[in-house]
């Protein structure tokens, strides 16, 4: 077995072989190993969170990750941002005929590593093979369920004037890396995708402050799109402090060359939190002690003025609008 063939998707001997020799060796766990039509597991009382996302990134491998790691982290993070502890994940793959099995193995290995780090199990899955040319290598869909942490209520409607905006670290790393790879820019080794599961970070934050109004991972459209959505949904204004927003010099450099603004670049391992003002410092301190939260800081505040708009306080004390991103700035980045 060197390449994926149409037979691998036909449900017969080849499909079985792909499962036994390629997929199970990486993803094995008691629930998946049963190979039932569905996974059956017990639930605790309380609320569940459920989410899904599809992944079509190009290039499939980039510094700091690949489409497999992205597919796990993306869905894990969507659960984490709902205030849930991720528990189980499904994995569906649409694979183009002729896809190298060695590359598939590498992707599956990354999936396993990311799942282990996040503390979730992949309990059900599906593989489809399509004719050469009908897909670009591999497309992955994951769906996940998680248990919502008791006492939390994540909703934009809870955003109130006076609250603080926190970011968990440097913004734009993921998109700058992928764009750099796509445009053939030689980037320094220090810049790589930030793709990471954030569920341990959100758990620690919610333990300190269950009253956190909103958690969001600023993926497509970046910090600008996420905050614009939140301002609109909550009917408040948000003012950012230009000098406080953490951007690596290398990312700023890529943006200069390609004409992008880091505020609009996708992240895959960062979160934004809107939190009560009196708890903001404490939350940031706790974040500093958790992996992926080391560079967390407060970057802005919620106002009653400017409902639905995001503004940026500039270095000289002026204010400018941070608008919703327009059109397809950077296609297929996550």
């Amino acid at each position: 077995m060197e390449y994926i063939t149409m037979a691998h998707g036909a449900g017969g001997k080849s499909s079985h072989e792909l499962m036994e020799k390629v997929i199970l060796p990486e993803l094995s766990n008691p629930l998946l190993d049963k190979l039932h039509d569905g996974a059956i597991f017990a639930v605790n009382k309380g609320k569940m969170a459920f989410t899904t996302d599809s992944y079509v990134v190009r290039p499939r491998f980039f510094p700091g990750g690949n489409i497999g790691k992205l597919a796990v982290c993306g869905t894990v993070n969507d659960l984490a941002m709902s205030g849930a502890v991720p528990k189980y994940l499904s994995l569906g793959a649409v694979i183009e005929e002729g896809f190298p099995i060695s590359e598939l193995k590498e992707i599956l290995h990354s999936i396993r590593m990311a799942a282990d780090e996040a503390g979730i199990a992949i309990v059900t899955g599906d593989t489809k093979v399509v004719d050469k040319g009908a897909a670009d290598g591999i497309f992955i869909n994951t769906a996940g369920v998680g248990e919502v942490i008791e006492g939390t209520d994540i909703s934009p409607l809870n955003i109130k004037p006076g609250m603080k905006v926190i970011v968990s670290g440097y913004i734009g790393d993921h998109a700058a890396t992928v764009l750099g790879a796509r445009h053939g820019l030689s980037l320094p080794d220090t810049i790589k995708s930030d793709c990471a599961p954030l569920c341990h970070l959100t758990k620690a934050m919610l333990d300190v402050c269950p009253e956190i109004a909103v958690l969001r991972d600023p993926t497509r459209g970046g910090v600008a799109a996420t905050l614009n959505e939140l301002a609109e949904q909550s009917g408040t204004g948000i003012i950012l402090d230009e000098e406080a927003i953490p951007v690596r010099d290398e990312v700023a450099g890529v943006c200069d060359i390609l004409g992008f603004d880091p505020l609009y670049l996708a992240n895959e391992g960062k979160l934004l939190a809107i939190v009560p003002s009196d708890k903001a410092e404490e939350i940031v301190e706790v974040m500093h002690t958790i992996k992926y939260g080391e560079n967390a800081c407060i970057i802005g505040r919620v106002t009653s003025e400017g409902a639905g708009q995001v503004g940026m306080e500039t270095a000289i004390g002026g204010i400018r609008l941070v608008d919703m991103p327009m059109g397809n700035l950077v296609p297929r980045i996550c």
């Binding site: 004409g259 003025e305 708009q309 503004g311 204010i319 400018r320 609008l321 608008d323």
Partner: peptide, 20 residues
């Protein structure tokens, strides 16, 4: 162009920016 006068005015609120 992003540097076009109209595009810049539009991006930065087109006169409807309520903070300023």
């Amino acid at each position: 162009s992003v540097e076009g006068t109209c595009a810049a005015w539009y991006k930065y609120g087109g006169g409807k920016f309520v903070f300023g």
